[in-house]
Amino acid sequence: MTVIAETTADAVAGIADGATVLIGGFGMAGMPVALIDALIAQGATNLTVVSNNAGNGDTGLAALLAAGRVAKMICSFPRQADSYVFDGLYRDGRIDLEVVPQGNLAERMRAAGAGIGAFFCPTGVGTPLAEGKETRTIDGRDYVLELPIKGDVALIGAHAGDPLGNLVYRKTARNFGPVMATAAATTIAQVTRIVDTGDLDPEAVVTPGIYVDRIVQVTQEATA
């Protein structure tokens, strides 16, 4: 059942030290900045964070990294023009990094959310990222065995939600949100607007409320 949190602090309450936290967003699009700020204030540490990038500039995920709360990043593309916070931590040996091809990152979370124990994937065959992994030839093509990535918590950004937790997204800010929502024990969504039950077109709902545990409204200004 979905709970509407009054504040972002209420929304992130109870996240434990050592938790695996899935954080949505591609760059800053869809990044749940207000929830990340609340997580920084909440104080959980020694986190494993799963996100496509490893922070941009000084806000959002970069701020969580700068606060020293993240022991390990699992991501596809840490190195960017403005990823200086992560770059510094990595070069100082203060953070672990697991690089995962972007599609495998998404599919491994999809598998976790769909109850799939593992899957054979053609991506990365013969590359350093497949070293040490089981491989199999199926119908003449080589595949690598990939395991699910399950989160204790997912923090995602969506456009609008209703009291039942149904979510819709906006443009390319959708990115990892719908997949991460399925892959965590507790999914927490920040939305720019909570609408009345029945106001979302059921045909247009992208994430059904069954996947969403807590929802909090954050004004658009606060997410920018």
Binding site: S76, F77, P78, R79, Q80, D87, Y90, R91, L97, V99, V100, P101, Q102, G103, N104, P122, T123, G124, V125, T127, P128, L129
Partner: peptide, 20 residues
């Protein structure tokens, strides 16, 4: 990845696109 010891590896969608 250049494989240089000080390079931070970042693959993004390159491997998925290459085989897809």
């Amino acid at each position: 990845h250049t494989g240089a010891p000080d390079a931070i590896p970042a693959v993004g969608g390159a491997m998925d696109l290459a085989i897809g």
